[in-house]
């Protein structure tokens, strides 16, 4: 059976959920061979094996943390040479897309970004994408070279499928470009203890209607009652009420949770672009004409400062 390379997104050996989703999708096309790079690479093996990786290629080097993007492209190219895979799958993060694109160019291949589903086809893997702020669904293929495809988080339910997960050292020689862009400083993002926005099953977002940084406590309380991540519209971010890392939409994160709750958000096209593929959508807005109501499964026309705290209390009561 053909092998499929899966690029592993991990933090010091802890594999992030989107990578496990990639393994699940990779098994539809062939046998997943994972590529884990940087500090802690070998520690990823157990989790990867449990989710179907037949092999885990690892390489540790300071370059992966000290220089931008290119060292990872070099490594994937080396893995491609070693394995001759049927496809290469990469998580659709900002960096993942850049790595994938440069790799594709080097391989003389095409690249598809932000797939939301993947299936085997007669002429290679077929990727489903959601375009024009999710107004259209397209199916496309890479028609030249080894398909390189990036897949959005929350596109598929993770399935365990134990496999050997044999660790093998990958040998990588870095290109001249590898050290072109130096990372001279790094400030890790502070953990809030809440789930990662793109990975969360439930996202609770606030917009301009929240009307102040301190009022975001109302949104956070609802999120915590549901074990959800917190999102924000660009209006709320631009006003300085919530960090940009939590922005949902075209120039923020694209999320696809089981449940999305929007409060005080009008539903502009650029916001919808980042949340329209959510499975269930709920909104609270005091304007009955707000476009967000066109998307909802359930909407409450009312003041969020009345509705949201009552909802939070009721959820807590129901959860006992």
């Amino acid at each position: 059976m053909a092998e499929v390379l899966v690029y592993v997104d991990h933090v010091d050996g802890a594999v992030r959920k989107p990578t496990l989703e990639l393994l699940t999708l990779a098994r539809r096309i062939g046998e997943p061979v994972a590529v884990a790079l940087g500090a802690g690479a070998a520690d990823t093996a157990a989790a990867l094996a449990e989710h179907g990786a037949v092999k885990v290629l690892t390489h540790e080097a300071a370059e992966y943390a000290d220089y931008l993007v290119v060292p990872k492209v070099d490594a994937l190219q080396a893995a491609h040479e070693a394995v001759s895979p049927a496809a290469v799958l990469v998580p659709s993060s900002a960096e993942g897309k850049e790595v994938a694109a440069r790799l594709a160019l080097r391989l003389g291949s095409g690249v598809i970004t932000d797939a939301v589903d993947l299936e085997a086809g007669d002429e290679g893997p077929v990727a489903t994408q959601s375009v024009f702020a999710a107004a259209y669904t397209t199916k496309s293929r890479v028609s030249k070279g080894t398909p390189v495809i990036t897949v959005k988080p929350n596109s598929v339910a993770v399935e365990a499928a134990p496999a050997a997960g044999a660790v093998e050292a990958l040998s990588v020689s870095f290109s001249e470009q590898a050290t072109g862009t130096k990372v001279t400083g790094r400030t890790p993002r502070e953990s809030t203890g809440r789930p990662e926005l793109t990975e969360a099953a439930i996202v609770v977002s606030g917009g301009r209607g929240v009307n102040g940084a301190e009022n975001f406590a109302v949104i956070e309380a609802l999120a915590d009652s549901l074990g959800a991540a917190v999102g924000a519209s660009r209006a709320a971010v631009d006003a300085g009420w919530y960090p940009h890392t939590n922005q949902v939409g075209q120039t923020g994160k694209s999320v696809s949770p089981q449940l999305y709750i929007a409060s005080g958000i009008s539903g502009a096209i650029q916001h919808r672009a980042g949340m329209q593929t959510s499975k269930t959508i709920v909104a609270v807005n005091k304007d009955a004409e707000a476009p967000i109501f066109d998307l909802v499964d359930y909407g409450v026309v009312g003041d969020l400062f009345d509705v949201v705290p009552q909802l939070t209390e009721e959820i807590k009561a129901r959860k006992g």
């Binding site: 594709a104 291949s109 095409g110 690249v111 598809i112 077929v126 959601s130 375009v131 999710a134 107004a135 259209y136 669904t137 397209t138 199916k139 496309s140 293929r141 890479v142 028609s143 030249k144 070279g145 959508i281 009955a288 109501f293 066109d294 998307l295 909802v296 499964d297 359930y298 909407g299 409450v300 026309v301 009312g302 003041d303 009345d306 509705v307």
Partner: peptide, 24 residues
């Protein structure tokens, strides 16, 4: 082109949800 789009379908409009007015 290195990629081929085989189909593009307009996403079906979401079925109209329930909308209630908050009366407390």
């Amino acid at each position: 082109a290195y990629t081929t789009v085989d189909s593009a379908t307009e996403r079906p409009a979401r079925t109209a949800g329930t909308i209630v007015k908050d009366e407390g």
